[in-house]
Design a protein around this nucleic acid. Sequence first.
DNA 1: GATGAATGAGTCTTCATTCAT
DNA 2: TATGAATGAAGACTCATTCAT
Lengths: 195, 195, 195, 195
Amino acid sequence: MKKNKPKYMQIIDAAVIAIAENGYHQAQVSKIAKQAGVADGTIYLYFKNKEDILISVFEEKMGNFIEKLNELIAGNGTAVEKLLRVIESHFRLLSEDHHLAIVTQLELRQSNKELRLKINDILKGYLQVIDKILIEGIGTGEFPSSLDVRLARQMIFGTIDETVTTWVMNEEKYDLVTLALPVQRLLINGCGNVE
Amino acid sequence: MKKNKPKYMQIIDAAVIAIAENGYHQAQVSKIAKQAGVADGTIYLYFKNKEDILISVFEEKMGNFIEKLNELIAGNGTAVEKLLRVIESHFRLLSEDHHLAIVTQLELRQSNKELRLKINDILKGYLQVIDKILIEGIGTGEFPSSLDVRLARQMIFGTIDETVTTWVMNEEKYDLVTLALPVQRLLINGCGNVE
Amino acid sequence: MKKNKPKYMQIIDAAVIAIAENGYHQAQVSKIAKQAGVADGTIYLYFKNKEDILISVFEEKMGNFIEKLNELIAGNGTAVEKLLRVIESHFRLLSEDHHLAIVTQLELRQSNKELRLKINDILKGYLQVIDKILIEGIGTGEFPSSLDVRLARQMIFGTIDETVTTWVMNEEKYDLVTLALPVQRLLINGCGNVE
Amino acid sequence: MKKNKPKYMQIIDAAVIAIAENGYHQAQVSKIAKQAGVADGTIYLYFKNKEDILISVFEEKMGNFIEKLNELIAGNGTAVEKLLRVIESHFRLLSEDHHLAIVTQLELRQSNKELRLKINDILKGYLQVIDKILIEGIGTGEFPSSLDVRLARQMIFGTIDETVTTWVMNEEKYDLVTLALPVQRLLINGCGNVE
DNA sequence: GATGAATGAGTCTTCATTCAT
DNA sequence: TATGAATGAAGACTCATTCAT
């Protein structure tokens, strides 16, 4: 299993840095290799081609994150609390890794349709986490039984994504993690007055 | 003013078709020229470079749309009603133009950071429309005065965008315009039960 | 028709020189372009890819030669005389074009199987010329009716080819055209004593 | 002497198979090593470089064959008979080793000029065998004293080679050994009628 | 002797843009 | 205005060879 070799993760991490610092289209294989401290050809001992590096970046970084999320929402707590945890974790992950934030929110979106389809496959795991919370919340009566889960999921994911992207585009000038609570409240209560 | 010449819009429309049918990276200048029925060199009489075509595509198509939105929210009605009109208009615009939907939701996002910054400039007009509605709604008491306008705007825009993107990715299999009302209700009330 | 453009033949001729002087594998597209006095990209306005240049070299040079041979054997004369003309023409063509001789006898044989299959297709025209002579000779009684045309053709072509290759490998130190007559006699009478 | 070690021939035989099955340019050192059941690096304990393997293939296979030919023509018999034996042996050798036939007639010809010069050195031994027969034949009066030995040798070798190549290119669909006699007769008597 | 992970040089092709007509 | 032939820069990937174990 190649993934256990240290060079595998070494190249993955180098790719994140190279893409964040140079942009997606300027992150040539030779730059990634240099950043990783290996020869160009070594890349191809661990990855099939350049696209394979990029998919693996997403798989390793987001795949692990989604696993963590599943643990996070497995325990006790209301659906509303769990939603907060997910948003907070998401915001924290990207707050703590400047390079990763740039790569996932800006650079990797420049990839071609084929690559983005594979990225979407990975993201499905995230969407399922949101779905679980929603269904659980409907079960506990926290959310109305009339809630359209698909639409609600799109709202939650779209809001989180847009919030992070805006933050990255504003050069991360403000604290993102602090926004988790107000974002969650907004998602739970919407914009309307509760009278 | 070049923009008044007939070939200007001819090339813009050709670009939308060429990008939608071939994908962003396969929509070479020569393909756009062929689609527009002009010579490659003619493109450069109307546009500074390829990027300028793409920005102009967005400017013309979304710019006009934003103007229309401003008219739409200038008249009478509550903020809540106006939000519905915006969502409905947005969904209708893209439902009616298959090519434009693919281009704005999928293809143009593959452009480089620089181009996307310029696209974001244009989108600011859209975000201002949302802000106006939110501020108006706070004024009329429809929305709580504690509402964080920036976050609310990110939720509204993020949700609309995610909903449209999901619809395009699902090959537009279901009716998008019908979703305007439930999406608006979700944005107003959130996921939570109103007790 | 691209072939009427002057640059088409300009590139073909440049390819012959570049291959002859640098060897097949060292004749990079950029070298051929430089030799032809055009930009690298211009090559691709006239040829699909590098292989297409090489096939076209053979087509243009040998294709024309085979046409000439067909005229040569169409007129009057015995089959034996016509065979001499063919050998002489072949020897003269390559004697007069040093570069072409190297390319056809040595360099083009290094190409991959696919390319050589296409070269063989072109050569079939040559083999048909030999067949025509043989069949005519059998008709006139110059050759025995028991002659196996396929084997005889292989002898004739193999002998001519081997003679030219040996001459090129010996750096063309002796006169090739002079050998046409003794080679023809050998092919007609074989090694054996006629008693 | 490396050549006496069992792995030496093991690698030679693996090279013949690897080249025959994959083609000259697709027969990477690693494929040859795998076929031979040794590690890549082991190859370099027995051969200086890749070219050295290929030369050795020819040396071992054709070198041995030429020795056998020399024995074959040392004994009694006329020159004409000996020529038949040579052709028959040659045809039989390649008929019996499908892989070897492909390698010598098609694949090894794709090698670069340098390698082919070395191959030609080995082939000189073969050409000397033919020369011996021709000179002997002139001595016995079987061949005319006016025979140009160099040209006759080129005819004999060229004919044999072309016959074998055609047979390989036709996927060895017919029996090659049977052709030895008619080929010999053709070489002795030529195409002409003997009256 | 044997291994196999690591190296790094080398090239074809695309396509945005120009400019002579 | 309009044309379209010509330009030329730029990058992913392969594979023979080495050398520490």
